[in-house]
Design a protein around this nucleic acid. Structure first.
Lengths: 187, 187
DNA sequence: GCCGCAACTTGTCACCGACAAGATTGCGCG
DNA sequence: CGCGCAATCTTGTCGGTGACAAGTTGCGGC
């Protein structure tokens, strides 16, 4: 009885990623150490290295996981509405709820930016976003590429500013995010 | 002849800040070490500490310098035009040209966020931005606060995405930034 | 001209990332 | 059933780093 720790820890990779999420949420991505994660998970200091090769490797895996989650979330809301504003709210919601992932996804100096798994997930999220703009229709957007960049910019900027504490903590981010996104194309 | 290094290095503080800009531009803010900066400047490993107390202290000083530069730039363009789009382009231009400063200004995990010098510079930049939105007039913006957040979001998001390499390197950032900013309120 | 004090140096400690080499165990294959 | 192999994890170590403590140097004010 009682779960005997499945030897070799069983699922170290997952455990370390989860610990990294906690650590980043607490102290920010700059102040995470592999050794601390190993301690949190109850494993020797070199344990995590075997799964991620590198500190950057760990963060790259986290970032890829983040882009995959984001792509799924965007895809899901596109399935239930064609409102661009809702898509923007989904982006903001992701950034706020998965703050640790989000903070690592746009830090090339912390990642192996050419990792193929990362690239695949990133492209998938990008495609969902681009598809959402396409659905808006050209009469509302003018040039599609510019509109896509503008859309991404406004939701990304809002999410970043919110997460860095630059918008005050008083409001509900999703509600304010909704109003902000609505200013771009109307709703 | 030749300038004999003014003893005690003369102006270590400035020199270290300049070296930090170079180092961050080269390797990103995550991979900067005080000891490397000391070496670049030709000073013992503990030299910089005396001026900044901390690694975070150094980056805080850099961030404050960045906000001051940004506030000045915004102020200058507000003096010569009342176009909101131009103000946005100034924001983008600052982020691209002073990339090292910009990358550090929105990373609370690297800074002493309560530093009074930092706070003062940040507030000054914020006020310039808010003033620019105010100049737009209420009939164009609707709610001023929402409009201000939207304006900040779109230019900040664009600058961030550009600097992180997410928009492709093909275009001219100021030109594309202009078109993006123009989508918010028209020009 | 000397003295106090700020600017810098030297030395040290704990921690970290990376690497190498060894131990443990589950699993495939016979 | 059991043997050996490979993946997983551990132990040990190295150079580099941030923080701190204690000295040294020389500028500026009296």
């Amino acid at each position: 009885m009682g779960v005997v720790p499945p030897y070799h820890h069983g699922d170290l990779r997952r455990a370390v990623l989860a610990a990294a999420v906690d650590a980043i949420t607490e102290h920010g991505p700059a102040n995470v150490s592999l050794r601390d994660l190993a301690r949190r998970v109850g494993v020797s200091h070199a344990g995590p290295v075997h799964h991620f090769k590198d500190k950057a490797g760990l963060l790259t895996a986290l970032a890829a996981e983040g882009f995959a989650l984001l792509a799924d979330a965007l895809n899901a809301t596109r399935a239930e509405t064609d409102s661009f504003v809702e898509l923007g709210v989904t982006y903001v919601r992701f950034a706020v709820r998965h703050r640790a992932h989000f903070e690592v996804m746009f830090r090339p100096d912390l990642l192996h930016t050419d990792d193929p798994v990362l690239a695949e997930a990133r492209d998938r999220a990008g495609a969902e976003l681009a598809g959402g703009v396409e659905d808006l229709g050209e009469e509302k957007t003018g040039d599609q590429r510019t509109a896509g960049v503008a859309a991404w910019s406004i939701v990304h900027g809002f999410a970043t500013l919110w997460n860095t504490g630059n918008l005050g903590a008083s409001d509900d981010p999703e509600e304010l995010g909704h109003r902000v996104a609505a200013m771009l194309f109307g709703d």
